[in-house]
Design a protein around this nucleic acid. Structure first.
Lengths: 343, 343
DNA sequence: CTGAAAGCGCTTACAG
DNA sequence: CTGAAAGCGCTTACAG
């Protein structure tokens, strides 16, 4: 199907192609009747400008990239990325932005992809999921002057625009909830792969300190976001006799719950559990799981909006946007969940 | 960072820009020493051609779109799409293709997105997940002459290239496994949202027929791929006294297992279960779940390879590629799984 | 084997 | 308010 061009529309309307271009791009100063005449022809013919040509002429492609490096969560047990992608596409759809996806598993794929992203001029900007600490490529992007926003706090560089969940508050709420239920020996299964894990631990430590509880190092364990690691961390935690545990990811919580069950303990009678994340209640087959929810989808929406502003406006200083976390108390499995929000 | 152009490389090498272009694009007939000289400069400067300019000149963007319409599975409880995306990106990375993602939730988003895809000339081709039957937009793509391959068998049009899992064989294997275990009243929780559901039911019916078992209509129920629908379907199935059940999706199986548990029945002693799909064993918290695995990731890889061939070669006739399904017998939850493959 | 030149379909100062 | 024209950075017949 032969595609119409600006020139052809111009011919049909009896004007120059420049004028048609202005109408298409909503330029203010066009004589109303001319605008209408052209507009009519456009809607009638269904003309849409060739994006490639526009990109070349305007040096803007309208395409942004979503970069997801290989991460422990990438195994996709975790609905984190799917949910994030949902939020991102909702925003790009609304803003008429095209989204390109860059996943890489191996270092080799990573290197090639990064080079392509940087040098081919295809993308206006990037959204990068910073789900591990040692992302060597982020500095490269900075050096090349690419516009990007990170999802997740970067470990060091504060000159970078990012959006993140308030993980410190999340960890705080989680442990505080357990404290208020009367627990004293509150363990944690943390994670140190990314700053989200760090921050959740910090929140946990903070609240224990605020409530005057001792920080028993034997109650602190780490996993790597996988279910298996949750299982093992819990096994190593049980000898320390926790009466409650905060698990910094629901995926790990699933593993931990298995360890608890295998030890013949009941949740929450023998050991209370608070998770973190946003696993669909679906997946939470077994025991009721109270959890800290982070607004993953909103993270995606916000990231796109920020990037879009960066691309349009004059470059503002780097922004750090922190979205609130929320404590979700689930009464029982599959039952309606009562939501208790805290800030 | 100012990007280098073909012209600048040409100047550095003392040749014309046409020659550089030919080197970049691996044209055969270039004098070796010239090629080497240019190649050296290219690697040294890290030059990469501007993809936008190339696209405009060559009418090929190197970008393909992945279209995921709103589907019941889209809730992402189901790792189907994430896994698929993983396969697709593996292939696009290898073939040096850029992937754009088009998700839409609402009819409105759908309409706008489709128009953009069709008229802006950005994409070379499409991969479309055909996870529901009434995809009104597929005929539009056909009419516009876009190249695309479907993932999942379309309901009617056999003139379309698609890749799919052998769902009939999958349904057959599932029920046959149960028959061989000695079960007689084998129920099914099917799905009729997509042809995968249809085919799995067909396989089930076929094997019952082959083994001379009666087809009791009260043993046939349907869900919509959601966990909740699995729960309800199982509740409606239990009065028919099945001694086994084949559930056409593992997500529904999770719901069904809950219904079974609530009825005070044990799996597999009271009722044996075979699922379908590829939920990570992780999520299968509770009872051991024997399942039919389909090669989701391979589906993605194959789709990309096919599309790539269509875009390069002369248009071949429509191909229908069917990948084998596989029976996975899980000995017990979390334990090592023994894989029994059948064809 | 290589170069000069046209052209891909737009945008955008510049004039008027 | 509108048009003529240059230009974005490539590819690709066409000549030689």
């Amino acid at each position: 199907m032969k595609r119409l061009t600006l020139d052809e529309i111009a011919k049909l309307a009896g004007v120059s192609r420049a004028t048609v271009s202005r109408v298409v791009n909503d330029y203010p100063h066009i004589k109303p009747e001319v605008r209408e005449r052209i507009q009519a022809i456009i809607t009638q013919t269904g003309f849409q400008p060739n994006l490639i040509a526009r990109s070349l002429a305007s040096d803007r492609s309208g395409i942004i990239g979503l970069v997801i490096p290989n991460t422990p969560r990438m195994v996709f047990t975790d609905p984190f990325f799917p949910t994030l992608i949902q939020g991102i596409t909702r925003a790009t759809n609304r803003l008429n932005i095209t989204l390109s996806l860059f996943l890489f598993q191996t270092k080799d794929e990573e290197a090639r992809t990064i080079r392509t992203i940087l040098n081919t001029g295809l993308l206006d900007g990037l959204i990068i999921t910073a789900d591990r600490k040692e992302d060597s490529f982020v500095p490269k992007f900075v050096r090349h002057g690419v516009s990007f926003v990170l999802i997740g706090r970067p470990e060091t560089n504060s000159e970078i625009t990012y959006v993140d969940t308030d993980n410190v508050a999340g960890g705080y709420m989680a442990a505080e909830h357990l404290i208020k239920l009367g627990h004293h020996r509150i363990g944690i299964i943390g994670a140190n792969e990314n700053t989200a894990g760090d921050d959740r631990l910090i929140g946990y430590q903070k609240v224990l300190h605020d409530y005057g509880l001792a920080l028993d190092p034997t109650l602190i364990t780490f996993g790597d976001f996988s279910m298996q690691s949750g299982y093992e961390a819990m096994k190593s935690l049980l000898p320390a006799n926790p009466d409650a545990v905060f698990i910094a990811s629901d995926t790990m919580a699933l593993g931990a719950l298995r360890a608890i069950r295998e030890a013949g303990l009941r949740v929450p009678e023998d050991i209370a559990v608070v998770g973190f994340d946003d696993l669909p209640p679906a997946t939470q087959s077994d025991p009721p799981l109270t959890t800290i929810q982070h607004p993953i989808e909103q993270l995606g929406v916000t990231a796109v909006e920020l990037l879009s502003k960066m691309l349009n406006g004059i470059d503002a200083p780097p922004t750090h946007t922190i979205l609130p976390a929320k404590l979700i108390i689930r009464a029982s499995c599959g039952a309606e969940q009562s939501e208790a929000t805290q800030t």
